[in-house]
């Protein structure tokens, strides 16, 4: 099966200007997302990982068109998304989102069936049909309609509320669901229930997921491909097995070795990556990771490495993988050899 890109993201940036200080000082800018290119393929789960502040949620909000990009394009199913109300409304029927905080994303004054039916009704589904679909969905997410349909959000547990959010996202029969830390606030036993539900629904409805999480175990488990972000940029992108088994960016390697060991006889001995994630207000010049990278060389602080193909279906933004980049570990440049 050849997979079509359902979403094509090109040159996407989001800069947030900060308020000026009272006296002087040029206005500073947060480079939350700072030039990313990637595709989301039809039917896949694309995992997104990276430290807090690296731009995961901003990317999600851009994909949802909840905020406007500073520059760049998002193409959905072959057509750019127009910034008109009608076309946005249409778009949001196809692309839905589930947030981490199960509580604040539900209207406390609406019963959960009213919350779920709301979207379809706004889009013109007759009330009766919308309600029938709602009860169907409640059933599908494991909440017996007779017991739960008329409850209010505060009468549910966190796991149950997250199921309601998933049902609500499904109510418009979308093609893509963006899950931003959707299971992160759940207890492990509930998290497993919700992950299973997500797997089943994906199969049943032929969904495409963008799955954002700081839990690398969970991302490895659900994702077909994984995108590693660092300070508003893509550090590495490739098939999940490849990124987890053969990471090519030193940041990915450090992130992966930060996962706690589950083997009491083989605990982590050395800190894989020192320091905190730096501030996206003044990202370092050259490679953004050079201030923390164990392999950094002169070229790294001077030139920004491109996100380059390192093998089929696998890209990394590191000078060590770019032929002739000037990094001592880079492969020889072929063109230079041929010119001899």
């Amino acid at each position: 099966m050849s997979r079509q890109p359902l979403l094509q993201v090109r040159g996407l940036k989001k800069h947030f200007p900060l308020e000026r200080k009272l006296f002087g000082g040029a206005g500073k800018t947060v480079h939350a997302v700072d030039g990313v290119d990637f595709d989301v393929l039809e039917g896949e789960t694309l995992g997104v990982v990276g430290e807090s502040g690296c731009g995961k949620s901003t990317t999600a909000r851009l994909l949802m068109h909840l905020i406007d990009p500073t520059i760049g394009t998002i193409v959905f199913d072959g057509a750019p998304v127009e910034n008109t109300r009608l076309s946005l409304r249409n778009y949001r029927r196809r692309v839905q989102m589930v947030f981490q905080d199960s509580y604040s994303s539900l209207n406390p004054r609406l019963t959960i069936e009213a919350s779920i039916a709301f979207g379809p009704e706004v889009h013109g589904t007759p009330k009766k049909e919308a309600l029938a679909r709602t009860h169907d969905l409640l059933e599908r997410v494991g909440l017996e309609p007779a017991r739960f349909a008329e409850r209010y959000p505060h009468e549910l547990s966190g796991g149950q509320r997250q199921r309601v959010n998933i049902a609500r996202a499904l109510a418009l029969q979308p093609k893509v669901i963006i899950l931003d830390e959707a299971v992160s606030a759940l207890d492990k036993s509930v998290e497993a229930q919700v992950l299973n539900l997500l797997l089943d629904l994906k199969e049943e409805f032929g969904l495409t997921y963008v799955f954002i999480s700081h839990d690398l175990n969970v991302v490895q488990f659900v994702s077909d491909r994984v995108m590693v972000m660092y300070l508003g940029k893509i550090a590495e992108l490739g098939r999940s097995e490849t990124v987890f088994g053969n990471a090519r960016h030193p940041y990915s390697t450090a992130l992966l070795s930060s996962m706690p060991s589950i083997d009491p006889d083989n605990r982590t001995q050395h800190v894989p990556l020192a320091g905190d994630p730096p501030n996206p207000i003044d990202p370092p010049a050259g490679c953004r990771f050079h201030t923390r990278c164990a392999h950094a060389e002169t070229v790294c602080s001077l030139t920004e490495p491109p996100l380059a193909q390192v093998e089929p279906d696998h890209q990394a933004a590191c000078h060590m993988g770019v032929a002739g980049s000037g990094h001592s570990r880079a492969p020889e440049a072929r063109t230079a050899a041929a010119a001899e």
Binding site: S157, G159, K188, S189, A192, N196, N217, Q220, F221, I262
Partner: peptide, 24 residues
């Protein structure tokens, strides 16, 4: 045992359902 079984972790087959503990 349930807690350990329901963990998503590297060695597991991708896409397989997790052995979740039912209920709350």
């Amino acid at each position: 045992i349930g807690l350990l079984k329901s963990r998503a972790h590297g060695a597991m087959t991708k896409g397989r359902r997790l052995d979740a503990i039912a209920g709350s």
